[in-house]
């Protein structure tokens, strides 16, 4: 039974205006097979949490811990984190010129598993996952994210999620910029990954829309760098009606 624990996490980022504290004591425990939605207004630090878990060098952890099955994730390099089973589906996946999707997927799979996948089953797996995500087979020979539309980039992220089979996935606003059809396709991919591998999911989103397709077990409201409230799926319904104003008023009153 895998578990991802985030304890009292404080994260700073260096800006032109000096050091800014973005995360101010985040506590979160995600068990295998659980779906946690993190919701919050823009600038509340949701993406910072995502990138800090993945190990982006821009974010500086000043206090707290991230543990995967008791192992200290913060001591691991970015690639090591991926190899122990963490995955980040990015909001703005970058283009990698000169590297085809096929080549990239095979290289990543080999890196994660520590050995090259068997040619026959791998080709079949890739083809099937692409079909499920309604990706044209021509994608395989295109350079990673080069000239992809917003929706294609997101599907490509979920394709990697399905093929690399991590223990925990952080989805950073995977729903943003998707039309309803694409949103359904992407959501089905996440649900499939969970059903197949017992994936634990940290679903970061601004909107409740995606929660119609990916049902969360827990909802956390993120405001000003920490969790302001948490509950079950019913909390999402309440946010849908009331928005985030309630928390922001409380926050500014507290300051």
């Amino acid at each position: 039974m895998s578990v991802l624990e985030i304890k009292n996490l404080h994260v700073n980022v260096e800006t032109d205006q000096g050091t800014r504290e973005i995360l101010r004591g985040v506590d979160l425990v995600i068990n295998e097979g659980e779906i946690h939605a993190i919701m919050g207004p823009n600038g509340s630090g949701k993406s910072t949490l995502a990138y800090t878990i993945a190990g982006h060098p821009k974010y500086n952890v000043v206090e707290g811990e991230i543990l995967l099955d008791g192992e200290n994730v913060l001591e691991m390099s970015v690639d090591e984190r991926a190899r122990v089973g963490l995955f980040l589906a990015m909001q703005y996946p970058v283009e990698i010129p000169g590297v085809t999707v096929t080549n990239f997927l095979r290289t990543a799979k080999t890196a994660i598993d520590g050995e090259a996948p068997s040619v026959r089953t791998w080709v079949k797996d890739v083809r099937e996952s692409m079909k499920n995500l309604k990706m044209d087979s021509a994608f395989a020979e295109r350079n990673v994210n080069e000239g992809f539309s917003g929706g294609e980039k997101k599907r490509n992220e979920i394709l990697q999620l399905e093929l690399l089979k991590p223990k925990f996935a952080v989805l950073d606003e995977t729903d943003s910029g998707l039309d309803v059809d694409a949103l359904k396709i992407v959501s089905e991919g996440v649900n499939r990954a969970k059903a197949n591998t017992g994936l634990g999911v940290l679903l970061i989103t601004h909107y409740t829309r995606i929660l119609r397709y990916i049902k969360p077990d827990f909802v956390h409201v993120f405001v000003a760098g920490r969790i302001a409230e948490q509950g079950g799926p019913e909390l999402a319904d309440r946010l849908e009606e009331e928005g985030y104003d309630r928390y922001q008023v409380a926050e500014s009153a507290a300051e």
């Binding site: 993945a54 970015v78 690639d79 991926a82 970058v94 990698i96 010129p97 000169g98 590297v99 890196a111």
Partner: peptide, 27 residues
């Protein structure tokens, strides 16, 4: 650095990531 981060976030080591990109570029 963002390209490097993307590739490393998929488990690929820094050296391998450079190799992948350069090979793709020059082949």
């Amino acid at each position: 650095d963002e390209q490097l981060f993307y590739l490393m976030a998929r488990g690929i080591t820094e050296a391998e990531a450079r190799r992948l990109v350069v090979r793709g570029f020059l082949t």
